[in-house]
């Protein structure tokens, strides 16, 4: 085996570096939509994810004071939490959410910025995303940004100083898979920061395709939590991400229209 092969096979030498920190896992997962927090923890552990997302919401006042808290069951000491701005439809809402998340996590500055455009598609409002990113970067936040599969928008977000750019594969929660592989490939080709597919993955083959396109990682939630067996799907996704990564580095054969025999023609005895 050559050194390159060994490096890719050993995730220690093929780390995903985000904002100067190395991660061995290229699969990032959410913490919501599970039957309960214990199932969430089992699935997250099975996925091997080191970076996990969370949302910021109003505390329940006067209701179930002993209800287990996400951060008590899935400790920030064991994972890198990535607070998201899900549910925000304006730059201002997203900025407030990030500030609250930083306070909630004792000064933690790595956030997933998403500013949504409409409820039907949950497509990003890229103009508001730019506005929010500009303010948040000035305030010292380290931003992994959810955006459209638009190579120009992705490049602008990188140039602004986002530490990772995360184009959607398909609408959030849709499970439609990689709808625009050519744009994803172009975004990857142009990038100097990690590119992660965020949203739209439905099953393991979708994750493998994203990685084969050269994406640095994948963030997913519904594909795992919404599966009939989330823990088993978490295992499948882990393998798919690893397989896709290896295939990307291995270099696939070119596609062509007609056959090439797999067995030699020489030596046929008839």
């Amino acid at each position: 085996m050559n050194t390159r092969t060994q490096d890719v096979l050993n995730s220690d030498n093929d780390a995903l570096t985000i904002d100067g920190i190395d991660y061995q896992s290229r699969l990032l997962v959410g913490t919501g939509k599970y039957a309960d927090l214990h199932q969430a923890k089992q699935a997250i552990d099975m996925s091997g994810a080191e970076i996990i997302t969370m949302a910021v919401r109003r505390t329940n006042i006067g209701q179930n004071p002993d209800e287990p808290n996400l951060l008590d069951i899935i400790s920030p000491d064991d994972y890198t939490y990535l607070p998201n701005t899900a549910g925000c439809y304006s730059a201002d809402e997203a900025i407030r959410t990030c500030r609250l998340a930083r306070e909630l996590l004792d000064g933690h500055t790595l956030v997933k910025l998403e500013v949504l455009g409409d409820e039907k598609t949950l497509f990003p409002d890229v103009a508001e995303t730019f506005k929010a990113a500009e303010v948040l970067i000035k305030e010292g936040f380290r931003i992994m940004v959810y955006t459209n599969d638009d190579p120009i928008a992705a490049k602008r977000l990188e140039e602004m100083g986002c530490v990772a750019v995360m184009p959607l594969a398909a609408p959030i929660g849709s499970g439609l898979g990689i709808r625009n592989p050519l744009n994803i490939a172009t975004i990857v080709e142009n990038a100097n920061v990690p590119i992660l597919v965020d949203a739209g993955v439905g099953t393991a083959s979708d994750a493998a395709i994203a990685m084969e396109l050269g994406c640095d990682g994948i963030l997913m939630q519904t594909a795992i939590a919404g599966a009939k067996d989330p823990v088993l799907m978490a295992s499948a996704m882990k393998k798919a991400v690893e397989a896709g990564r290896e295939a990307y580095h291995a270099g696939r054969i070119p596609k062509k229209r007609y056959a090439t025999a797999s067995s030699p023609v020489d030596g046929l005895f008839f």
């Binding site: 913490t31 919501g32 599970y34 949302a55 919401r57 109003r58 963030l219 997913m220 519904t222 939590a225």
Partner: peptide
């Protein structure tokens, strides 16, 4: 006043 906490999300 808004009081918020962490909750599961994607």
């Amino acid at each position: 006043i808004e009081i918020v906490g962490a909750i599961g999300g994607g």
